[in-house]
Amino acid sequence: MSTLQELHSLGVSVWLDDLSRELITSGELERLVGKGVLGVTSNPTIFASALAKGDSYSEQVGELVAAGADTDKAVFEITTEDVRRACDIFKPVYDRTDGVDGRVSLEVDPRLAHDTAGTEESARSLWQAVSRENLLIKIPATVEGLGAISTALSEGISVNVTLIFSLDRYRAVMQAFLTGLEQAKQNGHDLSTIHSVASFFVSRVDSEVDARLDEVGTEEAKALRSKAGLANARLAYQAYEEVFATPRWQVLKEAGARPQRALWASTGVKDPNLPDTLYVTELVAPDTVNTMPGKTLDATIDHAEPNGDTIRGSYGESQQVLDELERLGISYTEVVEKLEREGVDKFEKSWGELLQTVTDELERARTQRDAE
């Protein structure tokens, strides 16, 4: 078996955290599907980067200029076109896995992260525009996002909940998922067609906690470096097991519902001293997804060595890590709240960069058209 096949046999679906027009048109995305990649995620940062490189979008930008599109309309058309085409590439995977994998994620406008009604409307618009059953709409797990998650699911929209850092927020996300499915059932939707993943971020936790441990500077603090991210994620899986063993879930399961899988996001290591597949081999458990940036995916294919389930059985040790951090004066609540704020801010900044890049491309195309 290849490494990706081995991970899949252990219950881990490997998705790529990257999407661009070039990746699609070059055939690279199809090649990765052939290697065992089962889905793809995108976000404003990825789109901004893709648009700033090369001329893959030139033809569509020219068409948008001819149609009189403004910047917001152009961004909408460009991103939904990429995602629609990616959905078509992954459709065979979707069919083969009965809808579990073959998924492509597209995020709502991150400026709406604290606007419940705006997020709901954005989710509907994107869902209708892409018009592919293997789409996942990404909604941030802010307090305001929780209601939008339930609403989207209640309308039959499959959801990727993103920017989850804390265990309490993750539990709230799972409750929002159950509420959404209960409402979907009341609305007459086929629950088996509604899918969801919950994106729990990993490496950013280590980056923030390790910086604080370095400030403490003791031997005890040094011994805790690079342990918080894994501990946090493993305890999230414990919460997942608890929620999806409740009578409330069993009622929905009997009605055809699929569980909301835990997805490990931010799995590229930030510390060069760490193994480059740390957040892959150390986060293996059934019914999980690991979405990897290209560099991490390449490393995983090349030399990762999965060693069975590395999550279940670690809960006591993981809780001890968080307890020891608190004893050193590192507040878990303060860390995860800061990471959520920064996560939303980063996506908003990337969205601004995306808007500026598209504005520049539109202006360039108009100038060229006028010159001709």
Score class of each variant (00 low, 15 high):
residue 46 I to C: 02
residue 245 A to L: 07
residue 27 G to C: 09
residue 247 P to N: 02
residue 331 S to I: 09
residue 231 A to I: 14
residue 17 D to Y: 05
residue 188 G to R: 10
residue 28 E to Q: 12
residue 95 D to N: 11
residue 54 G to E: 08
residue 367 T to L: 08
residue 71 T to C: 04
residue 224 L to H: 08
residue 84 R to E: 09
residue 361 E to Y: 07
residue 88 D to P: 03
residue 159 V to K: 03
residue 242 E to W: 01
residue 343 G to R: 02
residue 60 Q to D: 07
residue 84 R to Y: 09
residue 77 E to C: 12
residue 226 S to L: 08
residue 52 A to W: 10
residue 175 Q to I: 13
residue 131 S to I: 05
residue 197 V to K: 03
residue 325 L to V: 08
residue 89 I to L: 12
residue 330 I to P: 10
residue 152 A to L: 04
residue 264 W to F: 08
residue 172 A to Q: 14
residue 180 G to C: 10
residue 355 L to R: 15
residue 88 D to A: 14
residue 357 T to P: 12
residue 320 Q to C: 06
residue 95 D to V: 10
residue 69 A to W: 07
residue 220 E to G: 14
residue 307 N to Y: 00
residue 79 T to Q: 07
residue 258 R to W: 02
residue 4 L to S: 01
residue 339 L to A: 13
residue 331 S to T: 12
residue 46 I to M: 03
residue 40 V to F: 01
residue 168 D to C: 00
residue 109 D to F: 03
residue 199 S to Q: 03
residue 116 T to R: 15
residue 194 I to G: 02
residue 226 S to D: 15
residue 148 A to M: 04
residue 120 E to L: 01
residue 16 L to Y: 05
residue 35 K to S: 02
residue 205 V to Y: 09
residue 184 A to V: 06
residue 38 L to Q: 14
residue 311 I to R: 01
residue 34 G to P: 06
residue 260 Q to A: 01
residue 264 W to C: 01
residue 144 E to D: 14
residue 137 I to Y: 06
residue 238 Q to A: 15
residue 154 S to M: 04
residue 104 V to F: 02
residue 232 N to F: 10
residue 51 L to S: 05
residue 164 I to Q: 12
residue 7 L to R: 00
residue 272 P to H: 09
